[in-house]
Computed example of a mutant assay.
Amino acid sequence: MFFAEARVRVFIYGQPVDARKSYDGLYALARNEMKQDPLSGHLFCFINRRANQVKVLYWDRSGPPGCSG
C-alpha cells in the first residue's frame, strides 16, 4: 500500500489499551477519545499495557476500517 507522506498523519493514543479490542473498539477510541475521524485515511496507533504490541487502525477505502497488529 502506498501512502503520500504529505497526506497521511499518524495519531498515537496516549494510554495503554486492551489488546483484545476489535477494530470497532479501536474505532470508538479514535472517534470519541482522540476526537478524530477514523475514516480520514490517517493511521491510529494503539499500544497494549505491557508495551509489547501495537495495533494500527486504518481505512483504505475498500470496506470497513481494518486493523493491523
Results as ranks from 00 to 15, higher is better:
residue 1 M to I: 00
residue 1 M to L: 03
residue 3 F to H: 11
residue 3 F to C: 11
residue 4 A to R: 09
residue 4 A to D: 13
residue 6 A to E: 15
residue 7 R to I: 11
residue 7 R to F: 12
residue 8 V to H: 07
residue 8 V to L: 11
residue 9 R to K: 15
residue 10 V to F: 14
residue 10 V to N: 08
residue 11 F to G: 00
residue 11 F to A: 04
residue 14 G to I: 01
residue 19 A to V: 08
residue 19 A to S: 11
residue 20 R to H: 12
residue 21 K to N: 08
residue 21 K to S: 05
residue 22 S to E: 02
residue 23 Y to T: 00
residue 23 Y to C: 07
residue 25 G to W: 09
residue 25 G to A: 06
residue 25 G to P: 04
residue 26 L to P: 04
residue 28 A to Q: 12
residue 29 L to S: 06
residue 29 L to K: 13
residue 32 N to H: 10
residue 34 M to Y: 06
residue 34 M to K: 02
residue 36 Q to K: 15
residue 36 Q to M: 10
residue 36 Q to Y: 07
residue 37 D to C: 05
residue 37 D to T: 05
residue 39 L to R: 09
residue 40 S to Q: 11
residue 42 H to F: 08
residue 42 H to V: 02
residue 43 L to R: 07
residue 45 C to Q: 12
residue 45 C to R: 01
residue 46 F to E: 04
residue 47 I to C: 11
residue 49 R to M: 03
residue 50 R to V: 07
residue 50 R to D: 13
residue 50 R to G: 03
residue 52 N to S: 01
residue 53 Q to P: 02
residue 54 V to C: 14
residue 55 K to R: 15
residue 56 V to C: 14
residue 56 V to A: 08
residue 58 Y to G: 04
residue 59 W to H: 14
residue 60 D to F: 05
residue 60 D to Q: 12
residue 61 R to I: 01
residue 61 R to A: 15
residue 62 S to K: 14
residue 63 G to Q: 02
residue 65 P to S: 09
residue 66 G to H: 01
residue 67 C to K: 07
residue 67 C to N: 06
residue 69 G to H: 09
residue 69 G to I: 09
